[in-house]
Design a protein around this nucleic acid. Structure first.
Lengths: 198, 198, 198, 198
DNA sequence: AATGAATGAGCATTCATTCAT
DNA sequence: TATGAATGAATGCTCATTCAT
């Protein structure tokens, strides 16, 4: 029991250190040395918990994203209107993005030289990340809305992520309630309108 | 004159090769060897035209982005409505994004280990990239629209980029006219509405 | 008593595992991890029975070779003719070689980076390995045979080992009786002839 | 012209350094750093001339062995008797062995973890090394000699190599003429006798 | 201006050995 | 005795940059 806990603790320490280092430098420029030092373990210890740098990176993404996907999915299940959807999404995905902005951007960059297995795992993550949004929109959009849920989801997620990213870039504080309000103001009418009205 | 032209030609060759290699691998994983080979010059020649790998990378971004910014700025100057703005943006920025998606995503990842000078140049690029959109929206949004142009621009750009990115990710063809139509359908009502109406 | 037996059993398990791993990979490429796993003990346990990887390796050689030397010595003591000597040698040394070919070849390769103590132990092994052959030939060769027993032994052992090694290399079955016959045919006349006749 | 020469010189320097280091330590324990230092070049330079440590090792073996095979083949072509054959072999192969004893022993040890391509190259070397001896014996042995040339060659080569090796091991000077005489005395009668006589 | 051979700092990964339990 | 998690020195290989030609 104690051992399992200790092991989980150390694994978490490493993931946390990896998050910081990968976030700060991107995959290729990140050094295993730095991750080990930040985690307070020896370099060799990293390889007791993860097979390789690639595996550590992908495992980190999985850890962070599956947790988020689970949270978002359950929260969106209770949602009954596009308006409520936008608010919920802004809060949950906004939080993910504030914390993991640079990590998420890594999703695309890390791919090219990865092994087939790791590419597959990343691909699954990328799709999984959009899944809850797409499903919620498929359920909530007016039945004859002309924009496919896949694209609508891309627009909502893109608008949200870019707004948060822009605030960060400009050094402004990110208040997710404000972002939600703006998002709602800009997107809600278009997402709610039915075909005849457009 | 002839020399100047030849010099410009070679510089262009190198930039073109660099674009392909950086696009395919990201900054750190890209190799100067590959760029030289693809450009058809010797490795040492790269250093006659660019000070370093960082300089080559930033110069490439500048070359591509300033060209785009100029184009977009002039096109948007003629625009007189939000609707027309969305269509124009989708076409021009969409093209930039289709061609340079991976390059643009590099903007954030390459920063951390860059020299102060290069970080500044990239910072300017990132802001410049959004500038025309912000200015156009500042001019075109209803005067009492509650969403600041900075954020509105982020939303529009984010929605556009993500939609295109999603299509690419899913292996679907990117038809910018369709994207423009969807964008218009989703964003136009929210961007056009006046405060009292919201 | 029981403890001693259990201890001896475990020691034997480890040596057996070590034999397989060293045989398959040579000294440097062999991993203590693999030996431990194959022996069914934890890595740390190896160090309860042997001081180091070097010690394990040399101990293994000693175990196998002293056993062989004892067997061969006793069998050769009963031998009364060069012909019988060749047959006996082919059988006993042949068996050793079939089983330990790769291990024996390690004798020379492992030396350089070994500690002085281990080098000495290996040196003794190498000489001990030839000893019974030299002694038997010193007794059996015609009294005025011009080839010194040391060299004659080298020739017989070399001819035998290479023949077996060649058969193994070519994937042919090693039938020691056949090897003995061929060896006898080629070597016996030269070893038996007296000086005047040569 | 000059460049080609300089390149060949450096390649030769590296091979010479590699020979010493591989000879002294065996493949796995040899360090690329040491080879580079001994060759008087930077570590990276090794990789301009050879793809990898494995490639360097196999290339070295090929360089040394093919040269020997060519020499031996041409010398043995002129040989008309088993007696003359033994003398010639002792001289030529003896020289190879004196110089490359440890390298040749590496032939078998280096194999296990090598890539398929390198294993094939080594396999070819091992067979090529015996080829001239086998061919000469196939031509020179009495027509009805019961020992196959393959095995007879193994015996002669084994006897020769072990004798030289034993002398080296015991710190005695290696005089190839003496070795040839002893070899002749022990092996010639058996190799020359015809079936009826045996 | 152009070349490309040479450099060497840098990095992911391995593995013999230790030691707290 | 026995364990196996942790260590960190060691090593093969890469690649941006330089410089003699």
């Amino acid at each position: 029991m104690k051992n399992v806990d200790a092991t989980q603790d150390k694994r978490r320490d490493i993931l946390e250190a990896a998050e910081q280092v990968f976030t700060a430098n991107g995959f290729t420029a990140a050094k295993m040395d730095d991750i080990a030092e930040l985690a307070g373990v020896a370099k060799g210890t990293l390889y007791l918990y993860f097979d390789s740098k690639q595996d550590l990176f992908v495992s980190l993404l999985e850890d962070r994203i599956w947790e988020y996907v689970a949270t978002l999915t359950s929260k969106l299940e209770e949602v009954r209107s596009v308006k409520c959807f936008v608010q919920t999404l802004a809060k949950v995905r906004g939080q993910l993005f504030v914390r993991n902005q640079r990590l998420l951007e890594s999703l695309s960059h890390s791919l090219p030289n990865f092994s087939k297995e790791h590419r597959l795992r990343i691909w699954n993550l990328r799709k999984g990340l959009e899944e809850p949004t797409i499903e919620a929109l498929a359920r909530l959009l007016p039945p004859d809305h002309p924009v496919a849920p896949l694209k609508a989801a891309a627009m909502v997620n893109g608008a949200l992520d870019y707004t948060v990213g822009t605030l960060i870039l400009h050094g402004q504080p990110v208040v997710l309630e404000d972002v939600a309000r703006d998002l709602e103001y800009v997107l809600l009418p278009g997402l709610s309108q039915v075909l005849g009205k457009g």
